[in-house]
Every structure is written in structure tokens, then in C-alpha cells.
Simulated scan of single mutants.
Amino acid sequence: MAGGSALASRARSIGRGFAVTTALGAAAGAAATGYGLWEKNQFVLREESLPILPPGFGPMRVLHLSDIHFVPGQHRKAAWLQSLAGLKPDLVVNTGDNLSHVKAVDPVLEALRPLMDFPGVFVPGSNDYFAPQLKNPASYLLGPSKSRPDPIALDWPRLRSGFGMGGWVDLTNRCQSLVINGLRVDFSGVDDPHLRLERYAGWPRGTRGQDAKPHLRVAVAHAPYQRVLDHFTEDGADLLLAGHTHGGQICVPGYGALVANCDLPTWRAKGLHDWESKGRTTPVNVSGGIGTSRFAPVRIACKPEAVLLTLTARP
């Protein structure tokens, strides 16, 4: 009997320990979720400086926006986006994923309207074409997201039209030049590589070997897949801007991103880095993004950001 009593006591002790561990795990998970819900609204401006302009030109202030993932009712995000017009950028570059809801087109256009007073260019991301759908938020950590067989279409044509009417240039598999602060800037953009829709349009005619006037070549894409970075680097880009990664979205303090949602190394999931391919080097800025999927609305150790790049003349 004594042995049976000891065994029962041992079982009760193990049960209590399991219950305590489970409760602590649940509490930690709830705390992390609560923090993540708070951090997703802690918008910051990351500032970088890059000496890539031809001698005698600059500075040029480029505001890089990406992955807004707007949902109706996000008043704090809208107000912050509108406040960015106070930076008075020389150029706005929007690298896609503006939407996260079928009714988000009008409010995101309203939020971005003050920034359309400045020259701008844009490309789409997958969440400009299709709405995110409910799934296990932890699946984000399992690698690049997959397309659903039954996607919910978003009104990308109306969003694109709104940007165009606001004066921004569509670079979806297109190239075009703009004169900014007296310097010709040649752009080449692609449709979303995450959906494998990219088609390379080259650079505006007259920029390679035919025109000796100073100019800057800027490549624009949503998702920074290595094949895209390789192509633009080898094709002579002076700067490449992309988003898509959300900076990892859920990061480990002191370590960084666990995933990049593409084949980019996780340590490059956010920030300004040099990309090398076949003997050429191009600076690449990957935005950590401004929003999240509406079904995974948390950020941890990865505050939402816009990026202000100050371009100066080469030494």
C-alpha cells in the first residue's frame, strides 16, 4: 500500500508540474502576442546614406515604402503615412503589397495622397492582386508562402489607376526615365517575382553606350529573390529597392530574422547591403515593411518601417 501511495503522489506531482508548465507556456505565448500586437503599430523611419550619384549632383532624398498591407480602420497607420509627406522627399518608391483587404483600395489611396505630391514609381506585390486568407499564423515560419488554389482577387487595376492619376509611374515589367533634381534617373521594374511574373524590360533606350550624360540606374521589385538581384546587378543597376520580407516580422532579439519568405539569406531580410554577381556589385535596400497580413497581425523585434535614403555624389 505504501508503494501505491508513493506512486500516486508521484503522479499527482508530475500532473501539477505539467499543468504549471502548460500555464506558463500559455502565459508566455499570450504576452508575446500582446507585445506583437503593440509593436505592429510602432512605426519608425530608418535613414540611410549612399554615395552613388554622379559627381556634382545631390543630395537626393528617396522615400522607400513597402508592404503597407492596409486594412480599413487602420487610422494610426493612415495618419503616419500621411505624416511622411513632411519629409518632402525628392522621390517616392513603392515596392508593393499595399492591400490586405478587398475594401482597402480607397483608404490606402487616401492615406498615400499627400505623398503623391512628389514624383513616384511603383510595382505590385502578390497582395495587390490577391487578398490574404485565414491560415495558421505559425505557417509563416515554415518558409516561402504558397499561392492558394482559390485566391480572392483584389482591385489592383483601380489601385494602379489611382497611383497613376496621382502622378506615380507604373514600372510593372517596364522601364522609364524621370528627371529629378536635374539628374536623369533611369528606372527598370518587374512584376512580382514571388508569383514568378517578372519580365525584364531593360533600361530606357539611350542609357548604355549611347548617352554620355550623367544618369542613375534604379531597379525596383517587390520580392528580392536571388535570381532578380543577380539579373539587375549584372545589368548595371546602381541601386535596387525591394520589400516583401517584412524584415522577418517575428525576429529573435540579438539574432534577427528566422525567415525571409524568399530565397534571400535571413541576415539580409532587412537593411542596406551590397549584392555581388559575376564581378559586379549593387547596393540593395530591403524594406522591413509597414504592415502585416491581417491574419498574422503581430511584429516582434521588427518594428514597421519606411526608409529614407539620402543619395549623395560619389567621392
Rank of each mutant, 00 (worst) to 15 (best):
S147P: 11
L141G: 14
F163R: 10
A85L: 09
I68V: 15
A138M: 15
P214W: 15
L109F: 15
A104G: 14
I250N: 03
G34F: 05
Y200L: 01
F187A: 04
Y140V: 14
P72E: 08
H215Y: 04
L91A: 07
F118T: 01
L115H: 14
G17I: 06
A6G: 03
L112C: 07
Q249G: 10
L264E: 02
L99N: 05
K146P: 03
D211Y: 10
V123N: 00
G25C: 14
G289R: 05
A223V: 05
L65C: 06
C262R: 02
G209T: 03
A301C: 08
W156M: 07
G36S: 12
G86L: 12
L309C: 06
D238A: 06
G29Y: 07
V307P: 04
G120K: 02
A242L: 00
L183D: 08
L171Q: 03
G243I: 06
Q210I: 08
L87Q: 04
S161K: 12
K146R: 15
T312F: 06
T266R: 14
S5V: 13
P132E: 14
D263A: 04
D211F: 09
R46Q: 10
R10S: 11
A296C: 12
P214D: 15
G25D: 04
G86N: 10
Q42P: 13
A257Y: 03
V284Y: 00
V71M: 09
G164S: 15
R113V: 10
A269L: 15
T245C: 01
F118I: 05
D230G: 01
G143F: 10
V252I: 15
P55T: 03
P304C: 09
W38N: 12
I152W: 03
A19Q: 13
P204Q: 03
V228E: 02
M116L: 15
P119L: 10
T282V: 06
F18V: 13
G29T: 09
F187E: 04
P315K: 06
H69L: 02
C302K: 09
V105T: 15
K135D: 11
G73A: 05
I52A: 03
L134K: 15
F18P: 00
K270S: 11
S145T: 09
A223W: 01
D186Q: 11
T207A: 07
G29L: 09
L239P: 10
K213Q: 15
V185C: 14
G271W: 03
E198W: 01
F187P: 01
V218T: 02
S293R: 12
A85P: 08
P54D: 13
A306W: 02
K135Y: 08
P151K: 11
D117P: 06
Y140F: 15
V169I: 12
I300Q: 08
N127W: 07
P151C: 09
L183I: 08
V307W: 01
L264W: 00
G166H: 08
T281N: 00
R174Y: 04
L91R: 04
G254R: 10
I180S: 03
C251G: 09
N285P: 02
L141S: 11
R16V: 14
L183S: 11
A6R: 14
L99H: 12
